[in-house]
């Protein structure tokens, strides 16, 4: 998935911006992250109507940036996950589950 980093102050961003939120520099680089480490998880039982009735939200740390992603299964804190993004979702899968 694409994330952004300021060349000037090294702040990282999930959302694309024209200027750095921290130092106002316009030198922002796009880069890819494909995996991360789970910092925390929350299981949700009241969900939006376009999504499953229950799922997990994971707080992920990867290459200097923190963000959230969704998983249908529980993945523990400290576990490594692979990240997938398409037009409608940012999801992840435990690397232990991959062949």
């Amino acid at each position: 998935m694409k994330v952004y980093r300021c060349e000037n102050c090294s702040s990282s961003f999930l959302e694309k911006r024209s200027r750095c939120y921290n130092c106002r520099s316009d030198r922002l680089l796009e880069y890819d992250v494909s995996s991360g480490i789970v910092l925390d998880t929350v299981q949700l039982f009241a969900t939006p109507d376009n999504l499953p009735e229950t799922y997990y939200i994971l707080r992920i740390s990867s290459d200097g940036i923190t963000f959230f992603c969704r998983s249908p299964t529980q993945i523990g804190e400290g576990e490594k996950v692979s990240l997938m993004e398409d037009d409608n979702s940012i999801c992840c899968k435990a690397e232990r589950d991959q062949i």
Binding site: E15, A46, T47, D49, I57, F68, N88, S89, I90, C91
Partner: peptide, 27 residues
């Protein structure tokens, strides 16, 4: 509206990519 619809409407105030992760205000 049904509660899951209102959850969805309220979640629309989150940033686009955080919304894509399934994040909601209760979470």
């Amino acid at each position: 509206v049904p509660s899951r619809r209102s959850t969805s409407i309220i979640a629309s105030l989150l940033s686009e990519r955080e919304r894509k992760s399934g994040l909601t205000l209760p979470s």
